[in-house]
Amino acid sequence: MKNSIQIPDFSRSPKVDQVGIIERASRFQTRSIKNESKIQALEMVLNMIDLTTLEGKDTIEKVNQMCYKAQHLHDDYPGLPTVAAVCVYSAMVATAKAAVKGSGVKVASVSTAFPSGQTPFSTKADDTKFALDQGADEIDMVISRGKYHQGEYNFVFDEIAKIKELCGNQARLKVILETGEIGTLDDVRRASDIAIYAGADFIKTSTGKIGSAASIPVTLTMLYAIKDYYLKTGTMIGMKPAGGISTSKLAIHYLVMVKEILGNAWLTNKWFRFGASSLANDVLLQLEKQRTGGYQSKDYISID
């Protein structure tokens, strides 16, 4: 917890005007990103991806294959970066950790009874401790949405603060709001404030497990929360939209938004991530198109 900072009254979080947010959001999508800006953006996107597999049927082999892809996105294209991290369940952390060793790719573990968070806190703490013991570099926790809707903001806050304490210096903490369950943009803003003040290093939109995932208006609302916190404290907080971002064009619009709201300083994988499983391949297709002038068959790009 950031002790020196005064905790605000979350029931009075800044208001959000939905019409205004949607209007601003649509402006990012009219930006025209061409030529060298586009190539640079596409490479940035690759380097910001948390390559993710979160399935009941995940196996050691599957995780190993994904981890190889994380480091070798498309070896036919020289000089490509790796992704930022791989994101797995805690049971797969050790496997992933070994598979990406020495590459600089981080291992993120979802935690705290992902995706619902409907367990006692002791279970969430154990879940987190296990992931950390296995060597996780990042913890992606979910907040207790039920408690949020009961108005128990302090409960939600305390859970985050305690998980942050467990993470210590070992892991950076991403806090998943699951905005599709949180409700209006006013709620998204309030939940963002709770997470940030409770100690989140990153705030993240979604688990990817429900229909409604990241969107530009939701992400924009969260970026404004990050901006306000930065203006007040000088501390940077990261942002991770997750789920539903599967095309290069959309990903670039997210970068435009981050640049125009928070500035170039946030345009690294230290401060911005995409939670995505299929985005990388579309980016690779676009990069090849920029390089060769034509779209390649998807068969030239490996799945995983």
Binding site: S32, K34, Q40, Q71, P81, A265, L267, T268
Partner: peptide, 19 residues
Amino acid sequence: MSKKKIETEKMNWEYAAAP
């Protein structure tokens, strides 16, 4: 195998001309 490291501290990304 060496991978290109994208500058991680500060990115300078500007929009190219789009006339």
